Computed example of a mutant assay.
Amino acid sequence: MTDPQPRIINVLLVEDDPGDVLMTREAFEEYLHNRLDVVTDGAAALAYLRREEPYTDAPRPDLVLLDLNLPRRDGREVLQEVKADEDLRHIPVIVLTTSQAEEDVLRSYQLHANAYVTKPVDFDGFIEAIKQIDHFFVSVVKLPTGS
């Protein structure tokens, strides 16, 4: 008996560092089979999630990977607005950041982040972290179907 194929999910990466975007794209292209969309600041993330211009046709993500230190709107503000919005709060948000500060970890969970992952600095560790996040949210847990 073989395991059923995991369903393909839509992932939104909110990240302003071009190197981290590139590594995440490589992980998705090489190892994962999910759709990855990228926005580079917090204001664009909220517009994407709310399907505002220029994202009116964007798919509703099944999972958000959110950096904390973003231009225009900080990741903490994005997280707070997402979790306060009845139409968006069901979407799991994984904080994926370089910060190891205890206050960032605590604040993220107070704002209802679903997980807090510190980005590994080396390429292989980063790829492995992305693969583990993907495996957990695609193969292990059941996500609500997008709307």
Rank of each mutant, 00 (worst) to 15 (best):
E86G: 06
L96C: 07
L79A: 05
L32N: 09
K83L: 06
A58T: 01
D74G: 02
R25G: 06
D20W: 06
V39L: 07
D57P: 00
L79V: 12
V95K: 08
H33A: 11
L63A: 13
E52R: 15
A44V: 00
D67Q: 05
K83I: 01
R76T: 07
R73N: 11
D85M: 01
V78L: 03
P71V: 04
H90T: 13
D85I: 02
G42D: 00
L96K: 05
A84H: 00
A84R: 05
Y31P: 00
D62M: 01
E77C: 02
E29P: 01
L22D: 15
V21S: 10
Y31F: 15
V93F: 07
F28E: 10
L68R: 00
L66K: 05
L36E: 08
N69Q: 10
G19C: 03
L46C: 10
D67N: 12
V82P: 04
R51H: 14
D37V: 00
T24S: 14
A44K: 12
L68K: 03
T40R: 15
Q80M: 10
A84E: 02
E86H: 06
N34V: 02
N34Y: 08
K83D: 03
R35S: 14
R72I: 10
A43M: 13
V64K: 05
P92A: 10
D74Q: 13
I91S: 04
L36S: 08
D85H: 06
Q80L: 09
D20A: 13
G75T: 02
N34E: 08
A84Y: 00
Y55F: 15
L66A: 09
D41H: 13
D20C: 06
R89H: 12
E26C: 12
D67V: 01
R51V: 01
P71E: 11
L70A: 00
R50M: 03
L96A: 06
V39T: 06
T24Q: 11
F28N: 08
N69Y: 14
M23N: 13
V78T: 06
E86P: 09
R35A: 13
E81V: 09
V93K: 03
R25K: 15
R76Q: 13
G75V: 04
V38F: 09
P92V: 10
V95R: 03
R50L: 04
E29S: 15
P54L: 03
R51M: 07
R51T: 04
P61R: 05
I91N: 06
